[in-house]
Amino acid sequence: MFKKFSQWLDSLEDKNEGVENLPSEERRRFLKMGLTITGVFAGGTLLSLVSKVDDVFGSIGGYSERYPYKPHYAMVLRVDRCIDCERCMEACRRTNHVPEYGWRTKILERHIPLGEGEWYREFMPILCNHCNNPPCVRACPTQATYKDSRTGIVRMDYRKCIGCKTCMVACPYDMRYFNEEKRAVDKCDFCWESRLSKGKKLTACAEACPAGVRIFGDLSDPESEVFQMVHSETRVVWVLRPETGARPNVFYTKG
């Protein structure tokens, strides 16, 4: 137990060793040379070739060894490939009948500083993280939102929603909105109702993406692309807001 604790302490040390911490001088030099930051990583000239998966999850306890659902749906987002064409958003809206005033997935535009007024652009798609420890599910008074015991998808039972909106406040990712027509909170369900339950293999957004940003699959299957990306030795993988302890199943990476 103490060994685990000390491992945990160690993991806190370098938790944030991401691209943001590259010295800006070097970053700019590489950019000027026409190389991407990802290229730098993959080339391994700057950082050692160590996967950060365990660091990300090591800080909140053993996670990557076991996946409790079958299939354990997950998505890996290759952010540096996203070009904000928003075809994913359109496909999602069409497929899931998302009303005008709501959204289930969105693209954020980030300007990541390089120092001295310089920055580079990155588009970051966001969607429900289908957390293993979903704060929304814990907070719901009537189990109107729940973790599907088979697939791990965080779903809604619309008729049970009393509209207290606690789940909306509890979500660290702003992934829930109130659907007036359904008189219930609505959210991404990895297209379970519209596609997966009908035998399709991909979510609408993953299928619509022209740039291969959204890799969707079964994290419990070692043969799957998502598993291999998340467990690659050479790939930096992270999740959003890990400090909340929500343990997302949507991962971010580059390249």
Binding site: A139, P141, T142, R159, K160, C161, I162, A184
Partner: peptide, 21 residues
């Protein structure tokens, strides 16, 4: 609340024991 009447039904039939609300 958007649907207070549902509270009367579902807090009884399907209460979530981990929910502070």
């Amino acid at each position: 609340l958007e649907n207070p009447w549902r509270m009367a039904i579902w807090m009884v039939l399907s209460p979530n024991l981990t929910s502070n609300i």
